[in-house]
């Protein structure tokens, strides 16, 4: 059945595409084999991450960007991530509301995903969904993260070009962005630029970037664009900037560096999952709860507890193992 799905999604069948995304999102064991095949088929799409604070206008900007990319005859897929309730596990996924204008175009695919307990504004299944879309032959895949504030930089492990969306009037909040989101941006959009303060917000960003010594080593200077997503103003310039960044990534070899960074983090994340699974199988949740309670009651401490558990797993904590590199 999986081979049939792969054949059909690469031939443009949207039901097969949607079904495969569901299977990988559900972490369906059977989908693992399919992902190996899909990984081999992919690597052609330009993967763009769009992040920024809630209400900055990400969904509307993405909608306008897709319209612009369609004018340039690209096939575009959108993965829009919204938060999962930590209490019920449910989610309301509302990004489609702002993307109605794209419905009916067979060269646009929109998929809403819930964050399902992950942090960093990105669903852990997002990368696998992107892998499916990449194999399906989309030219550009846009990942819209949940509204993110400061340190939610997970998106760098999933996208090649990062667009950070901000709005005028954030004032000192832009300062607060400095240590997190500011550092990952390949392109800034000061959205809602028809509001007062857009020039000032752009100037503040420019000033903050000039202070960033890390940036000096980088040949790429992130452009600061003013956009008004509601009207589409500034969006062609954004599409141009994305194209220029992709060209820069290719010419500089950074595309390989970023690809390796993503591969490394994916492998480590899977190993971490496996380690947690082994922990669960070795100790059992009840025993783990006892250890947690003992540490919380100060009968033990986190280091001793972790050391005991690590020994049960047949490994040592880094501090106990001088040979660890």
């Amino acid at each position: 059945m999986l081979d049939d799905l792969i054949a059909r999604l690469t031939a443009g069948d949207r039901r097969a595409l949607a079904r495969m995304v569901t299977l990988v999102e559900n972490n369906d064991p059977a989908s693992r084999a399919a992902l190996a095949q899909l990984h081999a088929l992919g690597g052609k799409a330009h993967i763009v991450g769009v992040t920024g604070s809630p209400g900055a206008g990400k969904s509307t900007l993405v909608m306008q960007l897709v319209r612009e990319l369609r004018r340039r005859d690209q096939r575009v897929a959108i993965v829009a991530v919204d938060p999962t309730s930590p209490f019920t596990g449910g989610a309301i996924l509302g990004d489609r509301i702002r993307m109605q204008d794209l419905v009916g175009d067979p060269n646009v695919y929109i998929r809403s995903m819930a964050s399902r307990g992950s942090v960093g504004g990105l669903s852990s299944a997002t990368r696998d969904a992107v892998r499916v879309l990449d194999a399906a032959g989309f030219d550009t895949i846009i990942i819209e993260t949940v509204g993110a504030g400061q340190a939610e930089v997970e998106i760098v492990r999933a996208a090649q070009t990062i667009v950070v969306v901000t709005v005028p009037g954030m004032g000192d909040d832009i300062q607060a962005l400095k240590a997190g989101i500011l550092e990952i941006a390949d392109c800034f959009c000061v959205n809602k630029a028809d509001r007062p303060g857009a020039d000032q917000a752009a100037a503040e960003l420019r000033m903050l970037l000039s202070l960033d010594t890390q940036r000096d080593k980088d040949a790429w200077k992130p452009p600061i664009l003013k956009t008004t997503a509601a009207t589409g103003a500034g969006v062609p310039e954004l599409a141009d900037a994305l194209g220029r960044h992709l060209a820069y990534l290719r010419e500089s070899g950074q595309i390989v560096v970023r690809g390796e960074r993503q591969a490394r983090s994916e492998i480590l994340a899977l190993l971490y999952q496996a380690l947690l699974a082994k922990l669960g199988a070795t100790l059992g949740p009840a025993h783990f709860d006892q250890i947690v309670a003992a540490v919380a009651a100060r009968q033990s401490d986190p280091y001793s507890a972790a050391s005991v558990i690590a020994r049960a797993l047949g490994i040592a904590l880094p501090s106990e193992d001088d040979a660890t590199g």
Binding site: T84, S85, T88, G89, G90, A91, I92, L93, G94, R96, I97, Q100, S112, A114
Partner: peptide, 13 residues
Amino acid sequence: ALRDAGMEVIYTG
């Protein structure tokens, strides 16, 4: 209500 029941709800408007 469906969200609170643990479902993923795509609201189209």
